[in-house]
Amino acid sequence: MVLRLLALLFASAALLMGLALGWGWPLGATISRVNPTAIPTLQNLLSGVLWQQAWNALATPMLDSPAWLAPAMIALILFGVAAMRPGKG
């Protein structure tokens, strides 16, 4: 029940982000709008802990994806986990 509720909240957030920002608005622009120092800090952290290719291979495509896609993917994962736990999700 709790997982399904969380999934519905993330799905609602994805829908609201898509409607409010536009369906093509990138995630990186949304994060930069909220916190301008977050992306450079994350880039320095990933580059220092892992390597520069991790930023290019993982983070850059994610930041170029639409902003509504991140909460939608979390909602799908939570719905999937809740479906595998019948009666407990």
Results as ranks from 00 to 15, higher is better:
Gly48Gln: 04
Ala82Arg: 07
Leu21Cys: 05
Arg85Tyr: 07
Met73Pro: 00
Trp68Arg: 10
Val2Ala: 08
Ile39Cys: 04
Met84Ser: 13
Gly22Thr: 05
Leu76Gln: 06
Ala82Ser: 15
Met1Cys: 00
Leu5Glu: 14
Leu21Gly: 03
Leu27Gly: 04
Pro36Arg: 13
Pro36Ala: 13
Ala75Tyr: 06
Trp51Met: 09
Ala70Val: 14
Thr30Trp: 13
Leu45Gln: 06
Ala11Lys: 00
Trp55Ser: 01
Ser12Lys: 01
Leu9His: 04
Leu63Ala: 09
Leu45Asn: 03
Met62Asn: 00
Leu9Ala: 14
Phe79Ile: 04
Trp55His: 02
Ala38Pro: 01
Ala13Phe: 07
Leu27Phe: 15
Ala82Leu: 07
Ala59Leu: 13
Ala54Glu: 01
Asn44His: 11
Ala13Asp: 07
Thr30Tyr: 08
Asn56Cys: 00
Gly22Arg: 06
Met17Tyr: 02
Met84Cys: 14
Arg4Phe: 09
Ile77Asn: 02
Ser65Thr: 11
Lys88Arg: 15
Val34Leu: 14
Gln52Leu: 05
Asn56Ser: 15
Gly24Arg: 14
Asn35Arg: 12
Leu5Ala: 14
Trp23Thr: 10
Gln53Val: 09
Leu78Arg: 11
Ala14Thr: 04
Gln52Gly: 06
Lys88Gly: 10
Pro36Trp: 06
Gly22Val: 09
Pro71Met: 08
Asn44Glu: 13
Leu42Ile: 11
Gly28Pro: 06
Gly48Ser: 15
Pro61Thr: 07
Ala54Gln: 03
Ser12Met: 11
Pro40Phe: 01
Ser47Phe: 02
Leu45Arg: 04
Thr41Pro: 01
Ser65Phe: 02
Ala82Pro: 05
Gly80Thr: 13
Met62His: 01
Val34Thr: 11
Gly18Tyr: 09
Leu27Ile: 04
Pro71Leu: 10
Ala14Gln: 01
Gly24Pro: 01
Arg33Lys: 00
Pro86Cys: 08
Gln43Phe: 05
Pro66Phe: 08
Val34Pro: 00
Ala7Asp: 05
Trp68Cys: 10
Trp55Asn: 02
Ala11Pro: 01
Leu76Cys: 12
Ala7Glu: 11
Ala11His: 00
Leu16Arg: 07
Trp25Asp: 02
Gly22Trp: 06
Ala72Gln: 05
Pro61Asp: 06
Pro66Ala: 15
Leu8Lys: 10
Met1Val: 05
Leu42His: 04
Ile74Lys: 09
Ala67Val: 15
Asn56Thr: 14
Met1Ser: 10
Leu27Gln: 11
Leu42Cys: 12
Ile39Pro: 04
Leu9Val: 14
Ser47Asp: 13
Asp64Ala: 15
Gln43His: 10
Leu45Ala: 12
Ala57Val: 14
Thr30Gln: 06
Ile39Gln: 03
Ala29Ile: 01
Leu45Phe: 14
Phe10Trp: 06
Leu45Thr: 12
Ile74Met: 15
Gly24Gln: 14
Leu9Tyr: 00
Leu46Lys: 01
Ala82Asn: 07
Ile77Gly: 07
Trp55Leu: 08
Ile39Thr: 12
Arg33His: 07
Asn35Ile: 05
Ser65Lys: 08
Trp51Cys: 07
Trp23Ala: 13
